[in-house]
Amino acid sequence: MRLLGGYVRRYFLQWLAWRSFALTLVANQAVTPLVGLAVWSTVLPERRLSDYFIALLFVRLLTSSYENHTFSEWVYQGGFCDDLLLPHPPVLVTLGENIAIRIWHIIIGLPIVAAVVLFAPPSLRWQDVALALPAVVLAAAIRFLFTYALALSAFWIERAHSVVGLGSTLIFLLGGEAAPIALLPDAVRPWAEALPFRAMLGFPAEIAAGELNGAAVGMGYLWQVIWLAVMVVAAQAVWRAGIRRYTVVGG
């Protein structure tokens, strides 16, 4: 834990130097929820979907993951072999940078959220938001493990960016960003509710916006815990298989 804290601090300071780059990352993270907000508020003005999309914007900033840039690039450049020599699991380095970037996302994103709140005042209830907080933490963990597992494909192929991009597309379509899960067609909705993409993004926003009753919240949490366990096992398996393939040239 102390080690992880050290990495978070180290990368937080490192990203201090890249804060203008972080700003551009945040702008790109924010744009899809805002487009969703605009489009769905036009389509269904009476449903007050702005609450949901403002919550979604917040969840997205808190769960952003760039392991294809931080980890995969590190593998491609060969710098990753240094991490292997560290006296602790190398994933701590990646996780530390991930958390540091998310902290920057929140710092930079707050003014954007504030501006949106001014334009479209949300009517969130505090109890709903409090109920959503553990779900945000779980979503952040699942999203990190998911992106990390996909980024590990860098051990096999040179297009880890495409693999992670495919994952992002699935999250966009089935995670509640293209449309809130409740508005998906009947044939797709049960699947979308169970698949991990909602657990990574849409579910916490749905709770915060007060769209779920008690049973649905419990069910969603159950899915989150299941998917968290699955992702931990999957990421470990991919890591073990990948690390055996890893070779590096130079010295």
Partner: peptide, 20 residues
Amino acid sequence: FEPSVLFSAFWQLGRYPVGV
């Protein structure tokens, strides 16, 4: 000042009618 990524973020707004 590097406008590249801000430009691409704004660019994404073009996929829907500006009326929304």
